[in-house]
Amino acid sequence: MLDRIGLSLWTQQSTAAAPASIPALYRRLGEDARLVESLGLHSLWLAEHRLWYDGWCPAPLHAAAAAAARTERLRFGTAMMLLPQHDPAALAAAARTFDALSGGRLELGVGLGYRDAEYDALGLRRDRRGKAMERNLGELVERWPAGADDRRRPWVGGMAPAAIERAARHGCGLLLPQTLTGERLAETVAAYRAAATGPARVGITKDVHVTEDGERATAFRDALRRHFAEEIGSWWALRGRLGFDQREGLERQLARIDECALVGPAAAVADALAEPLEAGVEFLLLRVAFDFVAADELRDQAVAVAERVAPLLAGERSAA
């Protein structure tokens, strides 16, 4: 089971809630990668955003390259790189370079991004991001290393019909968001599998915190809520109004994130992960890394996932 679990999400943020030395965050990425590798987990995932006060990493492959040099087997993913915001030839060159240096350890995930400010800084129209995605993904897949294992093709992130169709058509994996659950999850996986021609990998991301302590669970949920209130409040805009100015919509989103977060004892987390596994999801991207999760706590979480949650999943699988 360990080879089907990745940990996320290294963003290199130094926020108001959790200030940190940015050089130390980059140094720690290599140390964290060594630990995650030693636990036998599949991969470590970074993310991309740009032009934000907290230093969110805009070039995850460049950050991951240093950590790849310090590891031997661990794979490195992006969830997501904002493909429409990149020159596809340059991104393909970066991906090829990373892949060659690391011995084929790249799991490139691509998504749309949604902030007008990011598109505008780069001279791009956000309302054309779908078309740009289509064009850039085509070019990226075309430039993908010849002879690369099909299972190493890029992941496409999202759950909209367009994302599913696009992933299937380009022979890419599908990486689903943490808020997709229940029947909709099963339907989405089925729709993708029906449309896919290639290897058809399906993964899902889940916000996770393993703790037997009820107070710690509550503290984590509070911090998670504050974290996403900042992100959604500042970044999600609808008809000219920011998330902070749309209290109701913001609260709805926060409630949904809270509902979907898996916070509690290892057995409870493992129980909840049975849903995506039964729906046919084969890869679990467990988000244990947040700005507010301190370095030593993050190490404990990685160990808890590998040594306490994963064995329960494996047991469930063999029993099934």
């Binding site: 050089p23 505008d120 129209r125």
Partner: peptide, 25 residues
């Protein structure tokens, strides 16, 4: 190049100045 581009279509982009991150080490 013009940064930010201030394109009329990007209706939710309001920044007149942008700050690139991360800072130099």
């Amino acid at each position: 190049w013009r940064v930010p581009a201030r394109l009329a279509e990007n209706t939710d982009a309001h920044d007149e100045l942008v700050r690139v991150m991360p800072p130099p080490a």
